Amino acid sequence: MDFTPPLQKGTLLKRYKRFLADVKLEDGSEITIHCPNTGSMKNCLFPGETVWFSTSDNPKRKYPHTWEISATPEQHLIGINTGRANALAEEAIKSGVITELSGYANIKREVKYGDENSRIDILLSDDTQPLCYVEVKSCTLLEQTVGYFPDSVTARGQKHLRELMHMVSLGHRAVLLFVVQHSGINLVQAAEHIDPQYALLLKQAVNSGVEVLAYQTEISATSSIITRSCKVIV
């Protein structure tokens, strides 16, 4: 995924009201940009460090700039825009990078399914094999040397695990895919210390036949692309 037009950069001042962030530009001026991340962004907020943002030409947008990437004091890069995860996953499936999800003729996004009024991020289908339901999650929380999900209690994430288990019970294939958008993360596991119920449900999901994958994203100011798998501990 290339960033077109190219991203601009500035220095993070603060994030506030959940969806806003103030950034200082290289010429000393300050702007407010949209923060496309509904999570706590724990260990992702570093005032004084560099951020990169995209710009929309939609005249109806109150805040035309969108926060895309942050640098950490250790110079790791973090993909802040969680909305990019689904597109990155689709791109990697189509290109064959995610080998576990190759071989399907059709791919659809945001398809209604389940018993709890849900939409699956990616639905893979083929006449020769069962439907494959893929739930995509963006992982950005790094603690010590481990990447954790979620970064806050997530009732929505718990619901998605129940839906995936239900799909397995119906004879379909169900996959939870962590898209790792943090260059410092090489291992992913459930954040039991943050959301113990999610961690418990994840164990139940794996025991019921839900597959769990994690893939690392290579991030730069010009592009973002899924490149390789990384280990998951359940």
Rank of each mutant, 00 (worst) to 15 (best):
E218K: 06
Q197H: 14
N43V: 01
H160K: 15
K60S: 12
V111C: 09
L201G: 05
C230F: 04
L12C: 03
S95I: 11
M167D: 05
E49D: 05
A89R: 05
T154N: 11
Q75F: 11
L20E: 07
E143L: 12
T66R: 09
D121P: 02
T72V: 00
L123D: 05
V97P: 02
A21R: 02
L45C: 01
V206R: 08
K159R: 14
A199Q: 07
A190W: 04
P73E: 04
L20N: 00
K9S: 15
T66I: 12
Q144L: 12
I194V: 15
N186V: 00
Q189K: 15
G103N: 09
K112S: 15
E163F: 06
F3I: 03
I120K: 08
N86C: 13
Q197A: 13
K203S: 09
N86T: 15
L142M: 07
N106P: 00
S125W: 08
I226V: 14
Q189L: 10
K94H: 03
T4K: 08
T11N: 05
S95L: 14
S54N: 05
Y198S: 02
C132R: 02
F19A: 03
A92N: 12
D126I: 04
R15A: 03
C230Q: 06
V206D: 02
M41A: 09
Q158N: 13
S220P: 02
S95N: 14
S102W: 10
T217V: 08
M41F: 10
K94D: 04
T72D: 00
S229R: 15
G209T: 07
N43Q: 09
I233D: 11
K112E: 13
A199V: 10
K17G: 01
S125F: 07
V153N: 11
T217Y: 03
I80M: 04
E135S: 12
R228S: 09
R109L: 13
V136F: 10
R173I: 11
A214K: 05
H182C: 00
C230S: 05
M165S: 11
S152T: 13
A71P: 00
T50M: 07
F178K: 06
V212I: 07
G48V: 10
S54Y: 07
G83S: 06
T50S: 13
S183H: 04
E163S: 13
T11G: 03
E135Y: 13
K60F: 15
H65Y: 14
E218S: 10
Q204G: 00
D115K: 09
S208F: 08
I219K: 01
K24P: 00
D27R: 05
A199C: 10
K137F: 14
T128N: 15
K62Y: 12
M41G: 01
E110N: 15
V188P: 00
E110V: 14
H193L: 06
C132Q: 06
I33V: 14
G48H: 05
G39W: 04
A92M: 12
G39P: 01
R18L: 10
V97F: 04
Q144G: 03
R162W: 06
R61W: 12
K42Q: 08
R61E: 11
H160W: 15
A89Y: 07
V153I: 15
K203Y: 01
L213Q: 08
K62S: 11
V234K: 02
A199E: 05
I233A: 08
N106L: 07
I122K: 11
